[in-house]
Nucleic acid binder design. Sequence first.
DNA 1: TTCTATTCCTAACACGTGTTAGCAATGGAT
DNA 2: ATCCATTGCTAACACGTGTTAGGAATAGAA
Lengths: 343, 343
Amino acid sequence: MNSTRVTSHDVARRAGVSRATVSLVLNRSESVVLSKETRERVMQAAAELGYKPNSAGRMLVSGLTETIGLVVSDPSILLVDQYIPQVLYGIEKANREMGFHVLVEGLEAHGKGGAYDNLVESRRIDGLIVVNPRAGDEALVSLIEKNFPVVLVGSVRHPSEVSVTFSTRGAIKAAVDHVVGLGHKRIGAITFSSRGFVATDARLRALERSLQDHGLSLDEDAVQEGDFSAESGHAAATALLRRRPDITALFAGNDTIAIGVLNAAQEIGRRVPDDLSIVGFDDLPFARWLTPPLTTIKTEGVQQGTIAAQMLFARLNHRPLENNRVRLEPELVVRRSTAPAPS
Amino acid sequence: MNSTRVTSHDVARRAGVSRATVSLVLNRSESVVLSKETRERVMQAAAELGYKPNSAGRMLVSGLTETIGLVVSDPSILLVDQYIPQVLYGIEKANREMGFHVLVEGLEAHGKGGAYDNLVESRRIDGLIVVNPRAGDEALVSLIEKNFPVVLVGSVRHPSEVSVTFSTRGAIKAAVDHVVGLGHKRIGAITFSSRGFVATDARLRALERSLQDHGLSLDEDAVQEGDFSAESGHAAATALLRRRPDITALFAGNDTIAIGVLNAAQEIGRRVPDDLSIVGFDDLPFARWLTPPLTTIKTEGVQQGTIAAQMLFARLNHRPLENNRVRLEPELVVRRSTAPAPS
DNA sequence: TTCTATTCCTAACACGTGTTAGCAATGGAT
DNA sequence: ATCCATTGCTAACACGTGTTAGGAATAGAA
């Protein structure tokens, strides 16, 4: 298959120097003085042979892999929701600039020990980004406490975590102000996951508090749990609107859920936005092309991914972070799925 | 950070045997006879110390990485289209079962040499899956000709490629039969990319031929090029419907394009499906929740990813493939975005 | 007892790299 | 002529693993 590989030994022989010299030249070592002439001879020999250092040899001696792991808590979310790909793109972009590689792994990979052990203990990666971490993930917490370079996109509410999140409170307040300003009083919510997930709990709490600011409440029976997919959003909305037909505005846990909600509403004859207003979360690319275009909260997944990668690189280079927890301020994007409450 | 790592040497010392014995036990080598007792002692010592072999050491001596590369030709497509994540999920799932890892890389990564050189020459991966390969990608073709284990999801039309694709012809014929059967005669198309992309060209050609079977044609000015995003679909459809208001049915290059087309149609007052029928491609998860639910062609991205991974594993294990080119038969899914032609 | 066969294990090498201590050679100063 | 400083390079080790040829110990046969 492959004609025998080119090693630094071959380059050395061709350039008429020792293997050590080759390594010194190619790694631009400043500590050792080499003649300009030798440098060039080695460079040329390397170029002619098309020499690429074997990464395993390098990893072994340096202990560094130039690879980061991206652990996706539940890879099946990849199937239904477009949020993680946004984050992945942001990470990949940053890694490309740094010359790093990205290893993508689902959490349950490689036995019950989880992906962490396998990736970290076998020294396959220098650092780790975890998207949508679960607060109860003990293996992850243990990694954080060992001070292994982990950056979360999300949070496990651990004092020493390094994470990039967004402030739920501000954006949800803006959305509630908007919806209540349109005259809505009976408001419901469809979550994108069961409760217990940090993000879902945070969004519900922010919603409750923002409603209270207006003297309104989020009734217990006005909340229905979804399960990541548009399908679950459809089912949840159908159940909720049957139970509480008086509700005039719905907050969807995210845009994917919102698609299902929108469809369910139309299916049972509620016109959106005339009879029912809907607010999404994330502002995924399709949100503005739905019928009607979705009012939603823009969470900037790409930016989150890029920032997470940059924070990780800083840790790997032992550069101090000015801030262990970056918190983005999402923005409300008003489109046409929200309108004045029916009179 | 990390308390000194556990090596096979530590395990050997604890079990009172040599390092070689540890290696033999842990790799279940049958060729050398070891006493049951020694085996157990080593296993226990390894377990107690939490020994995980260093992957770099292993890679170096075995030449195998237990890692495959996933190269995404244009990672920005990740942002706008949900198709690649489906494939990624299928690949990740298969890899999980095999205990392999997945390295995801954009094509332009790591300098103009492309991602291939960097991944392959530096021996970071055992094999490669390329999604949406470009036919003109010389670095890729060269890799195929060197017989490096590559599996394409898509095709570069190279005689010795190993690929998983789907038959465009059959499904498009079914879709055309369906649409023409509804009485449509003036039919247009919005591509998901410029021409020159293998998939786009194939879909257009299949569309033309299928229309000819019914004595109809695909007019040159009834085709408009999109550029992966829903936004481009919207723009293209707006232009096309302005130029050819007589068109009553539109084939979108994929579902993401279809979202934009749907929105554009409604924006200029064409009711879907009453005034205009729309057919998508891929059957992404959101397709059935659009308003109206999208008639589309189901391409099974997850299955493609899984099959590609399995074919790659077969190659890596030097198992002969019964078929170098797996060709799936996609299925037409009729929903409500297609209806009888307006009279 | 001596020789051979068998069982169990280990010494030693190989994989390809980065890095440090130190060797030759040269030139300048005493 | 001798000594020292500098320049330019390399020998040798380390990283952690898998594997093969062969050594020690035991058992069985002559």
